[in-house]
Design a protein around this nucleic acid. Structure first.
Lengths: 168, 168
DNA sequence: ATAAACTTTCAAAAGGTTTTGAAAGTTTAA
DNA sequence: TTAAACTTTCAAAACCTTTTGAAAGTTTAT
């Protein structure tokens, strides 16, 4: 396989994976494009490479910046804005974990906390089942939250090292 | 908050979380309903509780079975099929991890393996960037894969215990 | 064999999300 | 100023996914 074809394949694959995990396909594709591009690209170049409209490119690049995955670069003497993606995969993973935790896990944790408090008749099977599920899901969610916290603070090799020591 | 309202809130919350993570909202809602219901429900009851059509209920329940989250129960002397969800949250998490790994991570790993093999000019910045990204993403994906493997084989309390020992 | 009870299918409709592109807005240079 | 270069907006269109519901299929009891 040649480089241009391989890039294309990566962009497709990353886009598909993104959409399976609730990330807009185009956003994942733009990110993939920037990941395999050594230097920063303009909106124009992103539009060109992926055959998408100006509006789409603009909005997607802003989204990627709000996720902390892409940064704007201004070159001296130039009006155009350039976009550059951090290529450090551990940083990327942490950044995504951090954002999804804040956007999605935290609100759920808050709701579960309320639902665990719901009182009812201890002999009512409906209540018993509800209460047990809420308690268990709440515990697991908190564990996930703590694991993410560990990951966010950790250095890559230390984190995986510790994980794999689990089965030494 | 009263039990019926609380159930409703859980169903909503779980549905929203599901859709944020690429799982059909209705599927997550049906699963949530079964999680807070002590006994097995018929298609009819699911339709009723969530105000969805027969076709939708049928297809969603089959999907949940294919994910290994719900099982069909037949009661002696009855024609109707009943659907029951395993309430063990660790089992559920493992089952979801197992399926998503098989359906989504494995194909990506296979593609990355190919993309890492792509040869090119070591002085070409395009090639260097592509190759580094593929190598790094491949390594991280393999680590995730191994972590999932550990999780799938593990007992709940042992797994979290080991995770939290990481920061003792 | 028949009919009632129940499940499955799938084309069409509804609903939701993403994309477009032209217009409006902004910044910079002269 | 003015106008060129560039970015942002957003209503409408395109696209994609989900849902519906009636019809077809299946199973069981008589």
């Amino acid at each position: 396989m040649q480089l241009p074809e391989a890039k294309q394949k990566f962009i497709e694959t990353w886009g598909k994976l993104g959409s399976e995990w609730g990330i807009n396909r185009t956003m994942a594709q733009v990110h993939a494009l920037l990941l395999v591009t050594p230097d920063a690209l303009t909106t124009e170049q992103v539009m060109e490479e992926l055959s998408i409209s100006r509006g789409n490119a603009n909005m997607t690049l802003r989204d990627l910046m709000s996720w902390g995955l892409v940064e704007k670069q201004l070159k001296p003497g130039e009006r155009k804005e350039y976009f550059y993606a951090d290529k450090d995969i551990w940083n990327i993973a942490r950044q995504v974990a951090k954002e999804r935790r804040k956007r999605e896990l935290e609100p759920v944790l808050k709701t579960l906390e309320e639902l665990v408090q719901v009182k009812g008749d201890k002999n009512d099977p409906d209540f018993k089942t509800f209460n047990k599920s809420m308690t268990d899901i709440n515990k697991m969610s908190k564990n996930v939250d703590r694991m993410l916290d560990t990951m966010l603070k950790a250095d890559e090799s230390w984190f995986w090292g510790s994980i794999f020591k689990m089965f030494k």
